[in-house]
Design a protein around this nucleic acid. Sequence first.
DNA 1: AAAATACTGTCAACCGATTGACATATGATT
DNA 2: AATCATATGTCAATCGGTTGACAGTATTTT
Lengths: 321, 321
Amino acid sequence: MKPKIQDVAKTAGVSPTTVSRVLNDRGYISKETKEKVYQAMKEINYIPNDLARSLYNKRTHLIGVIVPSASNPFYGDLVTHIERCCNDKGYKVLLCNSVHEAEKEKKYWEMLLRNQVDGVIVVTYNRGLIDLKQHLPAVAIDHYLSKQIQVVSSDNFQGGKLATEELIAQGCKHIAHINGAATIETPANDRRFAYQQVMINNGLTPIIYEVHDNQLEVIQQLFAEHPEVDGIFASDDILAIKSWQYAIKQGYRIPEDLKIIGYDGTELIRSIYPELATIIQPIAQIAEKSVELLDRQINEQEYAIAPAILPVSLCKGSVLD
Amino acid sequence: MKPKIQDVAKTAGVSPTTVSRVLNDRGYISKETKEKVYQAMKEINYIPNDLARSLYNKRTHLIGVIVPSASNPFYGDLVTHIERCCNDKGYKVLLCNSVHEAEKEKKYWEMLLRNQVDGVIVVTYNRGLIDLKQHLPAVAIDHYLSKQIQVVSSDNFQGGKLATEELIAQGCKHIAHINGAATIETPANDRRFAYQQVMINNGLTPIIYEVHDNQLEVIQQLFAEHPEVDGIFASDDILAIKSWQYAIKQGYRIPEDLKIIGYDGTELIRSIYPELATIIQPIAQIAEKSVELLDRQINEQEYAIAPAILPVSLCKGSVLD
DNA sequence: AAAATACTGTCAACCGATTGACATATGATT
DNA sequence: AATCATATGTCAATCGGTTGACAGTATTTT
């Protein structure tokens, strides 16, 4: 049987209350007793049962993190940084991969509630199931879930603007934008708005393609319908790289005939594709801010719900530089 | 206050015991009562407290997963698949990023024990702190931790053999191998053994470089000391890609002057670097096997501790094909 | 000498659910 | 009429730790 507080008390020759006092640093305890207790804990290999503690304290120090998947480098980085920040603040991460499925996400919410998590960080876009969250502290990254849920995102509008303006500055006339489904209400839509606005302000015609399942299909369609394209602003780096590869195969020269700017700018992609221009999202900062805001929600009864928007930057890559 | 079983009982007009019976499907319950109870739960938005249940049942359905980081695509994929498999079996994942630090890993082990996890999956290589695990079900991926811990890995020897033999078949005479620190006892060392053996069997001289912190430095060193190199077997894809890039910069033509084979073969890398040859590790299978073995350890008192070795395959990429 | 502070112990309630023992009340079977 | 399976309730213990109330002692401070 696992040793419990009673056993520690017995081997230390003190009362269970004293052990608890030592563990929680409450009331008066002499140095000698403290050491006796610690010694006893080491001796019998005692490890406190956080379930029991949490049950009484109504605090688990658990944070649920719902992400589509950790395979995508952006989400992978995000998860890594979130975990790090949580750990710094004494929180543990319960990881949930929603795989973009609303049904799964709903189940995960319920699971997290059953597990009495202190809060949730969501990086998915399924509205409507927030009624489930009954006053649970929550932060959404890059997605509007509801008015009551705090949003952390990078400056998507600025990102779209930076990318489009750079392409124009590089002399592109026929700039296309490829992005995910536009129906979803996410701050990422601001990238598209910025693109459209900058294009129109410069007297250019926006060309927009939406990717659903098959990325390659849409890329093919884009090049088939707009062979004159000389600039592409893709809403993520993978999409940008795939467009790049397809363009090369079609005989385009990069950057002479066609310039491409991606989005996200994870360390991984920048290190293995240094030639790619991209908009860098401050992933570490997004993670930090999210955890910080969530922590505040958990610990303070009063807090303002205002979106936090973090700055992006343009990485020209070796090709546009 | 959150509703508890008592509240459900009250609104359903039954006793708490009956509610528990419904929840756990035990003893006799009529359909009508069942429905009354479910109705009541819905009405007052009842969500069972898994802390309390776990405390009594001594089963948390929590699995600790210790990984260096989810940022690396291999680990990211692994985490994603492990989470999926766990979820399929009703387990929840407590994620820990050890960042290659023994101290952190030790703390994570203790944290997991405090949280009464049912088992642990480790993907790190710090020996010596296994005394901490006091009969906790555990599986190590790609690392020997101790005799008592079950290992799941892919066939690293076969991977090293496949890669080296392919380079030789392609006509390479001066084949170098770059890998991580060799001092660590990991199945990944078998890649190097296989490389050495195949080289020697073919009358070739092994050239081995070890990467510690700075990858680029070692790559530079390799090319400086062995400009005659015409084949590289790198122990992961990132390393392979960086070598590739450096070689190109140095004026090597690929594959005419130099052929490179990487390792891991994650979906991400294969999709954005289709030209790269690599040894594909069956990540999904590794995850599945690990969870399956861990689940068996958790549920069965008797189990054999034998390493599970899964097959790898060579992906020639568009360059070696 | 009285009062305050430091230290430890005993005891019981509590966190939210589970479970076994036992009582009771139907309706269906023999 | 006796027996049995079905259905529900009451009660108390349990999981492992926390906490407040209170008692008792020893040492310091005023």
